[in-house]
Amino acid sequence: MPSRVEFREDRCKGCLLCTEVCPTGIIQQSSRFNQKGYKVVEITAEMMSECKGCAFCAMMCPDFVINVFKSESEKGGAA
């Protein structure tokens, strides 16, 4: 798995701003509601492999919901 995104679902307010800035368009609204009643976003397991680790979603999120992880071997590109 080259890159991975974690959503702190309890913090998500379902604004969907992250969905529009994702260059691969893999973030979508889930069918789940969090405790506050917001319909949270998700990247499904099969979509996650397309994540490029750009972290635009995290940069856009006003609620610090998102953490993005990259594996080190990916960092060097071709290496």
Binding site: S3, R4, G53, A55, A58, F64, I66, N67, V68, F69, K70, S71, E72, S73, E74, K75
Partner: peptide, 15 residues
């Protein structure tokens, strides 16, 4: 061997 790195880095001053 691959090691996972966190890209996002929220400053500590942000509670």
């Amino acid at each position: 061997m691959t090691q996972e790195l966190r890209v996002t880095n929220y400053p500590q001053v942000l509670t």
